[in-house]
Structure formats: C-alpha cells, structure tokens
Computed example of a mutant assay.
Amino acid sequence: MPALTLYTNPQSRGRIARWMLEETGQPYETVVLDYGTTMKAPDYLAVNPMGKVPALKIGGTVVTEVPAILATLADAFPAAGLAPPPAERGAYFRWLFFAAGPLEAAITNRALGVTVPPEKQGFVGYGDFDRVMDTLSAAVAGRRFIAGDRFSAADLYVASHLSFGLMFKSIPERPEFVAYVQAHAQRPARLRANAADDALIAAAAAKPVG
C-alpha cells in the first residue's frame, strides 16, 4: 500500500480530508502546519506552492484540493467502498464538483457581502445563492445518500460543507440540510477524525506562550 501523509491544520478543511482517511481504514502520518509560519515555509511550499492545507502525499504523488483528495483516496482504496462503480459515477462526480464549485463560491460570496446583480449572474458559475440552495435542497431532501444507495465520498464532502455552513450560519437552516447532516454525523470514522483534530486544538491551546 502507498504511504500516506496528510498535511493539515485542525482548524481547516483538513478536517474533511482526515475524515476521508479514517473512512479508508489505512494508516497515515499527520504533519500539522501553522498559518503564516510553517504553512508558508519553503519546505511546505515545495509540497503545495499555494501555501495552504490540506495536501495529501500518497506514495510519491502530491494531491491538493479537498475533492481531489477524496476522489484519489476512494480510487486508491476501493475495498472501502467510498465511490460507486465507474459506470455509475455520474451523480457522484456531479455533487463532488457542485460542492467544490457553485456551493463554495456562493457561500463565500455571501460571507464577503458580494451580491452578483441579476444582469451579471451569467458571469459566475452559480447564478445566485438561492438557486444553489434550492438545487442542493432538492438533491438531499428525503435522501440519506446523494449518489446511489450507499455512503460515498460525495456524501462526506457535501455533509461537511453543510455541517460547517449550519454551524457558522452561512447557509439557511433548512430541515432537509439538518436531516442530511445528522444522517452522517455519527459515522465512526467522522468521530475518530473529529476527536483527533479536537485534541490537536486542545493541545495547542494548553501550550505555554513564549
């Protein structure tokens, strides 16, 4: 099996990548980086020139961007069952990239106070915020899984976005969003990943200053 190294910070999207690693059941090394210091140091910039986390080293290959990390791990460890069969991946890829594109862009612009005027909505990849929310609402309403009949990396990614959005009130608290997040909140791999990252945060807070 290829060696796995996760470059992360417990207060970042690295939490999503760690959840995925825990779902694979594979051993991995964690390298914790700090914003503004080690994340911008030459050693890490050689891994990810963007100077951001997460990044995954799998064997001799570096993968950045969360959906790419999830898709890579799902394919690298098929026994974990985190991706549908290749011929059935239409919805799987659709919602992975919907979350990475229209959903994240719409949430970010809303958080920054950016309102795209109606006559300019054709220039952005999501149209408007309400359209994105309505589209995702229809996709998860009454469903436990967004792509097929079992949990996949697409569920992990969409549920993570919705969980963060509900927590920080950057998305509306619609019943279908809450139900979908709750359907996956107690997965053992998610609980292990959260416990690991929460322990890192607690350790950093307890560390003497100076």
Rank of each mutant, 00 (worst) to 15 (best):
R110H: 05
K52Q: 10
E65D: 13
A91K: 15
A159G: 12
G60S: 10
R18S: 11
R144W: 00
L103T: 02
W95K: 08
Y35C: 06
G14A: 00
Q121C: 05
A204H: 04
M133N: 11
M167V: 08
Q11N: 13
P54R: 10
A205C: 11
E173K: 12
G210K: 06
G142I: 12
L156M: 07
G51C: 02
G127Q: 03
Q11L: 15
L4W: 11
L112G: 10
E88R: 05
V66H: 12
R131C: 03
G125W: 06
N9C: 06
K120G: 15
A179W: 07
D155T: 07
P86Q: 04
L45P: 08
V178Q: 09
A196K: 14
P118G: 15
S170H: 15
Y44I: 04
A99Y: 07
N9K: 03
Y180H: 03
G125V: 01
S12N: 02
M133P: 00
P102M: 04
D130W: 00
P118K: 04
R94K: 15
V209T: 13
S152W: 04
S152M: 01
L6W: 01
L191I: 14
R94G: 08
R15P: 03
K57V: 01
P27L: 02
P208R: 08
K57A: 07
A202Y: 04
T30I: 09
D197S: 01
E29N: 13
N109P: 02
A193M: 06
G14V: 00
A203D: 11
M133R: 02
A203T: 11
S152R: 05
I16D: 09
L33I: 08
I146N: 02
G127N: 03
S170G: 15
Y35I: 13
L45A: 06
D130V: 08
A83I: 08
H161Q: 15
P118Y: 01
A3E: 14
Y28F: 15
V63G: 03
A3F: 14
P49A: 09
L166M: 11
R190E: 00
V32D: 09
R13I: 00
A204Q: 02
T37F: 15
Y180T: 10
R131T: 14
L4A: 04
L96K: 13
A87K: 14
S137Y: 07
L45V: 06
P175A: 10
T30R: 05
N48K: 12
N194E: 13
R144Y: 01
A68S: 01
F177T: 07
T64V: 14
M167Q: 14
P54W: 00
P49L: 10
G81N: 11
F93E: 10
W19A: 12
L56D: 01
A206V: 08
Q26R: 14
D198C: 01
A196T: 14
G51N: 02
Y157A: 11
V47I: 15
V53Y: 02
E88H: 12
F97D: 09
F168H: 04
W95R: 10
R150F: 04
R190T: 05
L96I: 11
A80G: 05
A105H: 07
L103D: 06
G51Y: 06
R13D: 12
D155F: 07
V53W: 03
F97K: 12
A17E: 00
G101N: 04
T38G: 11
G101A: 12
G60A: 09
F93G: 08
E176G: 13
A141Q: 06
A74V: 01
G210Y: 14
P86K: 05
S163Q: 14
A41D: 08
